[in-house]
Computed example of a mutant assay.
Amino acid sequence: MHKVLTVCLGNYCRSPFAALALAKRGAGELEVRSAGLIGKWEGEPANDSMIVAARRLGLDLTGHRAQQLTREMLGWADSVLAMDASVLEVLREISDDDVQPKLGLYLGDRDVPDPIGKDQETFNSCAILIEAATTLHVGQPQQ
């Protein structure tokens, strides 16, 4: 089974939703976890607006609790998917040579915009974008 780690800044909205959407789409193919670069929301539930956006797409994000990225998580993963280029840059800086080949952007060539501080429609659009992009990662050959 291919192990995927999704990473954003705080593990508060984008990466937990991406992990949930990937787990649903890749059931039986993927084992998915998520983490954030910072521990600001450590142990906290996902952002309320992202929970609402997830629910609109038939996904339940209420069980999520934020966690900060660890070296063990990076070692566990076969693929590490950053939600945006700034997260990817930090991942590249902190990763050793074994992890470097695992790193990439969730959308392949562009950022998933951070909806924090924006309205519910922005969260809904972000969730739709993330969910649609699950097809980029499910059914792909393992590295």
Results as ranks from 00 to 15, higher is better:
65 R>V: 09
138 V>S: 10
143 Q>I: 09
22 L>D: 01
11 N>A: 05
65 R>F: 03
41 W>N: 10
19 A>S: 13
6 T>C: 14
120 Q>K: 00
42 E>M: 13
32 V>P: 00
20 L>E: 06
64 H>W: 06
23 A>Y: 05
12 Y>M: 06
21 A>K: 01
31 E>N: 10
105 L>F: 04
113 P>H: 06
108 G>S: 12
1 M>Y: 13
56 R>V: 06
74 L>Y: 06
50 M>V: 02
39 G>H: 05
127 A>W: 04
77 A>F: 02
20 L>C: 06
112 V>I: 11
93 E>I: 14
52 V>F: 05
16 P>M: 07
12 Y>C: 02
122 T>E: 11
48 D>I: 04
45 P>C: 14
69 L>D: 00
3 K>F: 12
94 I>R: 15
29 E>P: 00
109 D>E: 14
26 G>R: 02
25 R>V: 07
104 G>L: 04
24 K>D: 10
24 K>Q: 14
128 I>P: 03
142 Q>H: 15
27 A>K: 14
115 P>T: 15
68 Q>L: 04
125 S>M: 09
16 P>G: 05
17 F>L: 11
115 P>V: 13
54 A>S: 12
94 I>P: 08
98 D>G: 10
122 T>I: 12
31 E>H: 09
6 T>G: 00
92 R>S: 12
107 L>A: 14
92 R>H: 08
71 R>G: 15
125 S>R: 10
21 A>D: 03
35 A>L: 10
133 A>N: 07
72 E>Y: 07
49 S>R: 13
110 R>V: 08
78 D>F: 09
33 R>F: 07
52 V>Y: 07
45 P>Y: 11
142 Q>A: 15
13 C>A: 14
116 I>G: 01
125 S>Y: 09
119 D>N: 13
134 T>M: 08
4 V>N: 01
42 E>W: 11
75 G>E: 09
44 E>H: 15
81 L>Y: 11
23 A>G: 14
77 A>W: 02
72 E>W: 13
21 A>C: 12
27 A>I: 10
95 S>V: 08
32 V>R: 01
21 A>E: 04
32 V>F: 06
9 L>I: 11
143 Q>P: 14
93 E>Y: 12
117 G>Y: 08
117 G>M: 08
85 A>G: 11
24 K>W: 12
60 D>Q: 08
31 E>W: 03
62 T>G: 07
116 I>E: 05
17 F>A: 02
28 G>P: 03
44 E>F: 10
63 G>E: 05
11 N>P: 07
57 L>I: 05
137 H>F: 08
74 L>N: 03
89 E>R: 15
56 R>Q: 15
57 L>S: 01
135 T>H: 10
40 K>Q: 13
116 I>A: 13
141 P>I: 04
137 H>P: 00
4 V>Q: 00
80 V>C: 14
41 W>E: 11
47 N>Q: 10
78 D>A: 04
85 A>E: 15
2 H>E: 15
82 A>D: 00
46 A>S: 14
11 N>C: 03
93 E>P: 01
35 A>W: 00
81 L>Q: 05
65 R>H: 12
61 L>C: 04
76 W>R: 15
4 V>W: 00
75 G>D: 11
102 K>G: 07
131 E>R: 13
110 R>E: 12
36 G>I: 01
132 A>M: 12
125 S>T: 14
